[in-house]
Amino acid sequence: MLYKCKINITICYNDITFGGVVIDLRRAKILVTSFVCAIVAVGATSGNMYLALAGIVIGALFMALVRRRSAEVHIDERVEALGGRAARATFVIMSVFLGLLSLGFIFIGRNTGDGGLEALGTVFCYVVCLNCAVYSITFKYFDREHGGEY
């Protein structure tokens, strides 16, 4: 059975408006980088670590907001498909690995009477269950997002 999947390709807007002034995104990046460099330099020379950190955080925050506002989203179908497959493979590998690890820990813990190891195994078991449940929910969500009915 085949299921159709919508793939949205968003057009890239390279300009952002900032206080009514249109700025090229590349220039905005340069501006923010210079700002962060200047703040970090001032912070480093004056021995104020917090100032340097604040500069970096503000710069990162600004860039994140600018990216969202400028809607600069280049969706490459190949990258999307590869990302999806890599994510699925990671999920399967980690689930199996943690599942086996948890079984091993519980088994060894019970045999040696090490309660800590057994508790760790139990927690890993819950992690695997949570992983599977979250996968199911997100799968359902994306399925509905892309028009699936089941």
């Binding site: 819950y126 992690v127 269950c129 949570l130 449940a133 979250v134 929910i137 997100t138 969500y141």
Partner: peptide, 15 residues
């Protein structure tokens, strides 16, 4: 989206 976020939140609490 609401169902998805609520479901995941509930699962986290359960976990």
């Amino acid at each position: 989206l609401g169902f998805c976020v609520a479901g995941i939140g509930f699962l986290m609490l359960l976990f």
